[in-house]
Design a protein around this nucleic acid. Structure first.
Lengths: 122, 122
DNA sequence: CGGTATCCGAAAGGATACTG
DNA sequence: CAGTATCCTTTCGGATACCG
């Protein structure tokens, strides 16, 4: 079985929020990361994505489903159970997300330094 | 000397506008591409970026300068001349832009197909 | 549990006109 | 030439509350 997702999976002050990348909508890349280890349920995703509202998360998921990045499977059970999983297409984003994250960690200091320098002389 | 930029450098119906990536603001990645071959002037950039308004282009350029992606050099001449050029940091984005573009061309068909399928059954 | 409905504020981007 | 000034529309994301 897959381990549960940590509430601390995404740092609230994560440097990547400062960085000039976006894959899909605001939460798309994080959802991809959350699904890397296997299928997840709606509420399960809300744990690491602590501040996302249900409305926005469902919109994100539907848009990702629409684009073929994830599948949505609703079990015919009560209480309801729905599982989201990466498609091969969604999985193909992982390398790109990794590349973007690498760029961010590699160059965060440069960017922050540039901002400080710019603020100083203007 | 560097060849001039073509007005057709960016297809108006470019597939990448459909794709789920964004580097910086809307025009950032295109500016990076425009500057790949060497320094460019404001008006020169407006040729390939046909639909960008001066207000938005100047905001984009200032934000890129602020983040250390480009330099701005104003010659002390009349009529005025200003040149924008990639910094090493900005240049380091080129590989990432290339990776994103590769992903887009490789997977555009998949994404379009997924959208059509989604639209069909809903 | 897995969402939807409604309302709202902020921000991005564009249209148009003007300037040193 | 290289921008700035105003205004305006659209979009995104969040707050809150409710539903099958």
């Amino acid at each position: 079985m897959t381990a549960s997702l940590s509430p601390d999976m995404f740092d609230a002050a994560c440097p990547t929020t400062v960085m000039p990348f976006q894959i899909g909508d605001k939460w798309t890349a994080m959802v991809v990361l959350c699904l890397e280890g296997g299928p997840r349920r709606f509420t399960e995703l809300r744990v690491p994505l602590r501040t996302v509202t249900p409305k926005v998360l469902s919109a994100t998921l539907r848009s990702m489903e629409r684009d073929g990045l994830i599948t949505r499977f609703a079990y015919d059970e009560n209480p309801p159970r729905v599982e989201y999983a990466l498609t091969p297409l969604g999985r193909s984003l992982l390398t790109l997300v990794a590349a973007a994250r690498t760029w961010c960690t590699d160059h965060l200091d440069d960017l922050l330094e540039a901002r400080a320098a710019f603020a100083a002389r203007d």
